[in-house]
Write a protein that binds this DNA or RNA. Structure first.
Lengths: 106, 106
DNA sequence: CAAGTAGTCAAGCAACTATTTAACTACAAT
DNA sequence: ATTGTAGTTAAATAGTTGCTTGACTACTTG
């Protein structure tokens, strides 16, 4: 118990990023073209609803839902419910930390 | 024919990095803890032989060989043979390009 | 209430992946 | 030539993944 790996993705600290398994999980979330396009869409800055994303990327809502779970479990997206709409936004802090986690890379 | 996706990983240009599929493939190569540790080891700078890597990470040479194929196919490592020894080094240019490929991420 | 929209869940499938083991090639040293 | 080291390959297995489909909940609007 109190295993760091059990911590919720939203509580990821800069410390967790040093763990190969956690970083691999984030890269794994980025390792599918569809998910990468979702992240790129969200990287443009705005909050976007699930159906807007599905529409924009020409995928089913069920497929977006499926991929959004992977992204959320990696901690890469945050979700905010408003009525029947669920807005998705990028966890820029975590993504930046992960992309900058190769210390010896100049 | 002359499909950009058919190009050899070693010939990856900065242009290919704009393609979601190619970027996803690179992230996919980074999505396994063992491969991530290989990349981190190589990121320290030196050329390292396969058996040294296998020894250092406490994995079998066969398993390293398996993973090194994935990394080489993604273009992330270069290999140079010298006698019976094969030295591996990191393609820093490609890794950097990939990690910096989120233009809207400040 | 009924119909439409937004989102979720679970089953099923084909395709892929990580790992182990064992058999193999190639080079080096004695 | 034999032994040892470095590396590759293929088969087998267990686990995972991406996607589709259909049924489901929840909220909204006529």
């Amino acid at each position: 118990m109190s295993n760091p790996k059990d911590s919720h993705p939203l509580q990821l600290s800069a410390r967790s990023i040093e763990d190969s398994e956690q970083r691999a999980k984030i890269f794994s979330a980025l390792s599918d073209p569809t998910r990468l396009r979702i992240v790129e869409l969200l990287a443009e800055g705005e909050e976007v609803s699930g159906s807007e994303i599905a529409n924009h990327l020409d995928i089913s809502l069920a497929l977006f839902c499926h991929h959004s779970r992977t992204l959320a479990e990696a901690g890469l997206i945050q979700q905010r419910r408003e009525g029947q709409t669920k807005y998705n936004s990028l966890n820029r802090t975590l993504l930046k930390a992960c992309l900058e986690s190769f210390p010896s890379l100049i």
